[in-house]
Simulated scan of single mutants.
Amino acid sequence: MVAAVNKLQKSINSDEDEPSRPAHVQGPASSKLHGSSILLDANSTKRKSAFLPYRPQSTVLTNLQRGNTEATFCPVEVTLSFHERAGQGEITEDQVKAELLRQKHIDFRDSHGFTPLHWASSYGQLVSAQLLVAAGADVNSLAPDMVTPLLLAAAGGHNEIVRFLLDRGAVSTHMDIVGNTALMYAAAGNHPHTCNELLARDLDFSATNENGQTAYALAVEHGSHLSQALLEQYMTAVLTAGALGNI
C-alpha cells in the first residue's frame, strides 16, 4: 500500500491543507479548546460521530497583535496562558524550560483537559509542537473523548504536524471515543494532503467508526470532494497494484 501512496505524491504538493469547514459547525467563540467529539440523536441517547472541530472559532490574538490596526493605545492588557501561547506559536525553548520548573511535566492540562501539545497541534504550530516534544510531551496524550494531538492536527489539516507526530511515535490508527481515526477526521474535513500523509503509513483504509462509516464514506457524506478524489485514487492504485501482483 505504501507503494500505491507514493504514486499519488507526484500529483499532491506538501503545502498545509486549507481549512474548509463551514462556519456554522465551528465551536464556540472561545479561547478554550472544545473537547466534545460526540452528538446525541434528538430522539435517543445513541452516540453519533460528529466531527466537531476542536479548534475554537477565533484565536486569542487581537487585531493589534496581528498588526491589523495601528498601535496607538491599548487599554486592556492581553495575557495568554502557556497553553494559549503554545497554540499561537509564541513559546520559546527558554519559556518551556521555565514552565518545566513550575510544573511536574510539560503535559500539564488546562481546565478542559488539554495539554500544550494538543493546543499546538490544533492550531498548526509546528515549532511549538517540536519544542514541546523535545521537552518530553507525550504525542499520544489523551484529552477528553480520547482525543490525541494527532486527531487535532488531522482535523485541522495540518499535514506537517501530522507527519512530525507520526515520526515521533503517534499511533496512526488511534480512535476517539466513537471510533473516529485521524484519517476519518482528515477525510471529513476535506484535507487531502493530510490524508496522504496518513495513507503513507500503510494504515487500515477500511477501518470503521461506531456507525460503520469508513473515511471514504465520511468524505462523501460531508461533501469533501478533494479528499474523496484522493481516496478514490488511492483505492484505484491499491487495486491496480494488487492485480499486477497476481500476474
Rank of each mutant, 00 (worst) to 15 (best):
residue 30 S to T: 14
residue 230 L to S: 04
residue 93 E to G: 00
residue 69 T to F: 08
residue 6 N to R: 14
residue 205 F to M: 07
residue 242 G to T: 06
residue 89 G to R: 03
residue 135 A to S: 06
residue 130 Q to Y: 00
residue 144 P to K: 03
residue 179 G to K: 06
residue 27 G to Y: 01
residue 21 R to A: 13
residue 58 S to R: 13
residue 78 V to S: 10
residue 76 V to A: 11
residue 172 S to I: 15
residue 235 M to A: 14
residue 202 D to C: 09
residue 168 R to S: 08
residue 227 S to T: 02
residue 185 Y to A: 14
residue 1 M to C: 04
residue 84 E to V: 04
residue 82 F to Y: 11
residue 178 V to K: 07
residue 161 I to T: 13
residue 43 N to V: 05
residue 117 L to W: 03
residue 113 G to R: 05
residue 78 V to L: 09
residue 242 G to I: 13
residue 205 F to D: 12
residue 231 L to N: 06
residue 90 E to W: 13
residue 153 A to I: 03
residue 58 S to N: 15
residue 211 N to M: 14
residue 42 A to K: 10
residue 189 G to S: 15
residue 8 L to C: 04
residue 15 D to V: 06
residue 18 E to D: 13
residue 186 A to F: 01
residue 134 A to V: 01
residue 228 Q to G: 11
residue 161 I to G: 10
residue 101 L to Y: 08
residue 3 A to E: 12
residue 3 A to L: 13
residue 29 A to K: 12
residue 155 A to V: 01
residue 54 Y to G: 15
residue 218 L to S: 09
residue 41 D to N: 12
residue 230 L to R: 08
residue 117 L to R: 07
residue 155 A to W: 00
residue 200 A to I: 09
residue 202 D to W: 00
residue 240 T to I: 15
residue 148 T to K: 11
residue 37 S to Y: 03
residue 222 H to M: 05
residue 109 R to F: 02
residue 228 Q to M: 15
residue 173 T to M: 15
residue 159 N to I: 04
residue 151 L to D: 09
residue 246 N to D: 12
residue 206 S to L: 10
residue 19 P to V: 10
residue 182 A to N: 11
residue 98 A to Q: 15
residue 159 N to D: 10
residue 235 M to R: 14
residue 41 D to W: 01
residue 177 I to Q: 13
residue 153 A to E: 01
residue 237 A to M: 07
residue 157 G to N: 04
residue 68 N to P: 02
residue 81 S to H: 06
residue 127 V to Q: 15
residue 175 M to F: 12
residue 163 R to D: 15
residue 161 I to R: 04
residue 179 G to F: 05
residue 180 N to M: 11
residue 68 N to H: 12
residue 146 M to G: 00
residue 69 T to N: 05
residue 85 R to W: 09
residue 64 L to I: 02
residue 43 N to T: 09
residue 76 V to F: 06
residue 65 Q to D: 08
residue 43 N to R: 07
